[in-house]
Design a protein around this nucleic acid. Structure first.
Lengths: 140, 140
DNA sequence: CAGCCTATCGCGAACGGTCGCAATAGCGGC
DNA sequence: GCCGCTATTGCGACCGTTCGCGATAGGCTG
């Protein structure tokens, strides 16, 4: 199913703005913020407003084309949905960010499925804590 | 160490506003929002503003007296720090919220410590996903 | 290709939360 | 009890995000 088809199949419309937002997310190398997307889209379509960007990200997420993650507590970051599933560890002291190894992520998910019959999306929000470096330095 | 002492020991001051904010969090039965705290404090101290509430929650958190948790993606919820440590599962479909069993929480934390040497705070943000009920009902 | 239905857009207001600033008020010293 | 130092307050602006509204424009039908 092509993009146009899957958009139409959900009763939505393929607007210029929507195409450009999707394009911006797909071209981005890493996780990007809504504002970065907006700026990029504006180079080709200057009148686009923030709310349009947000609404399109939401729509594209419902279609399974993009996803969002909360890394720190403040801004939301977006990325294409077809990259491999990964979780994040964020250090509350130094802000450093690490990927959780797939085996660890799977083990955690498995446990929650088994003991709570809950299907977790561990990629949705980062796990905050203290990283190895900051733990070894008592306080500084 | 009394409240006054521990506040002073950190070089902070025990203002009326600070005492009232702490009081509001401690009296609350469950996790409360900053706005709920502000409203409660205002009944006894009407001139208090939102930023004062936030700054006091931050200060009290640094003292280890209160903690905050992100349940859904939108608002922050606060509670006293001496209740038992617990994580949350939040269903993205129905919004229902479940506590993670201590054994499960411990197993997850242990794994992250062992394999990433990362000390996680699993109570800080809820894990979102799909709960048992919503998983059993295919779509509706 | 014109017309209709309605999804979507742009805008401005609102909401949760943070920040900078001048005024206020804890608290230790005398 | 008064003084001075400075942590804290209240205020207003701002940031990221959401929402309601009237205007616009996809896309199906004829």
């Amino acid at each position: 199913m092509t993009l146009a088809e899957s958009v139409r199949a959900s009763g939505r419309r393929l607007t210029v703005q929507r195409r450009l937002v999707l394009d911006a997310v797909e071209r981005a190398r890493h996780h990007v913020t809504a504002d970065e997307i907006a700026r990029r889209v504006r180079t080709r379509f200057p009148s686009i407003g923030p709310s349009t960007v947000y609404r399109n990200l939401e729509a594209l997420e419902a279609l399974g084309l993009v996803t969002h993650t909360h890394l720190d507590d403040r801004v939301t970051r977006w990325h294409r949905a077809d990259t491999h599933l990964h979780g994040h560890l964020v250090c509350r002291v130094c802000g450093r960010e690490t990927e959780i190894r797939p085996a660890v992520l799977d083990a955690m998910a498995k446990r929650l499925r088994a003991e709570h019959r809950f299907e977790p999306d561990l990629a949705h929000s980062a796990i905050v804590g203290i990283c190895r470096r900051c733990r070894d330095v008592p306080s500084s």
